[in-house]
């Protein structure tokens, strides 16, 4: 589908002053006049012409993909932060625990990895851009970029530093290459000082980026 053309969903990372624009090389991958976008468009028109699908079906599907955001992911994390039994189930079987909240997971297997005082997790898909869309929505441009996909595996600390995330040397940085059938969700550490916070307040702390591990939740 033409998700790559939807620039309004491909936020770069200017807001926190990242010096590298990871969005740029992703755009180079998908020029509208390249082979694959043209092929997609030709197939789309053929399917409509032969009345296999309607133009509206395509638009509805795109609207559906657009409508999904980080809300499901944030809900899962807040539940895990506030309910130790749920957290145990989430860590043991991510797919089942997510379905338990009524969140659809399609046929994907979800694996939840927990950030602790000893381990910080970072997700990348070096081969394409596998991403748990059913709980996080569309992946950001930087996640799809060749720059991120190649650098996140061999210099994860430098990449995170560019996003403002500094991990101490005595903490293991564990990169997960999401190259096959699992999908990953990072369970961030609940920030100290939020013990009395309501679920609504906690939800506000959770961004898409901290569920991929490129940042950590911070108290404003």
């Amino acid at each position: 589908m033409s998700a790559h053309d939807e620039q309004d969903h491909d936020h770069g990372h200017h807001e926190d002053g990242s010096p590298l624009n990871y969005a740029d090389d992703s755009r180079h991958d998908f020029s509208e006049t390249d082979h694959y976008p043209l092929l997609v468009e030709a197939v789309r028109q053929l399917l409509i012409e032969k009345e296999i699908i309607k133009a509206r079906d395509v638009q509805e599907r795109l609207d559906f993909m657009d409508s999904r955001g980080v809300e499901h992911g944030a809900r899962i994390v807040v539940k895990a932060w506030t309910d130790p039994d749920y957290k145990a189930r989430l860590m043991a079987d991510g797919t089942a625990a997510v379905k338990e909240l009524g969140i659809p997971m399609a046929d994907l297997e979800l694996l939840v990895v927990e950030n602790t005082a000893e381990i910080h997790n970072l997700i990348v898909c070096t081969l394409c851009s596998c991403y748990p869309r059913s709980i996080l929505g569309l992946p950001p441009d930087w996640y799809k970029s060749k720059t991120y996909r190649s650098r996140a595996v061999n210099e994860p600390r430098s990449v995170m530093r560019e996003f403002g995330t500094i991990i101490a040397d005595n903490v293991t940085v564990r990169v997960h290459d999401s190259n096959a059938d699992m999908r990953y969700l990072v369970l961030p550490e609940r920030p100290a000082g939020t013990e009395d916070w309501s679920e609504e307040q906690l939800t506000e702390l959770i961004t898409r980026d901290c569920l991929v591990g490129i940042t950590v939740p911070t108290i404003p």
Binding site: V153, N154, P156, T172, D181, M182
Partner: peptide
């Protein structure tokens, strides 16, 4: 271990990488 994958890995030896393999 990251240091087993990359000769010039610039992070600490505690760093690791998990990947799915058939």
């Amino acid at each position: 271990n990251q240091t087993d994958i990359w000769d010039e890995y610039d992070g600490p030896v505690v760093d690791t990488l998990d990947i799915e393999i058939y």
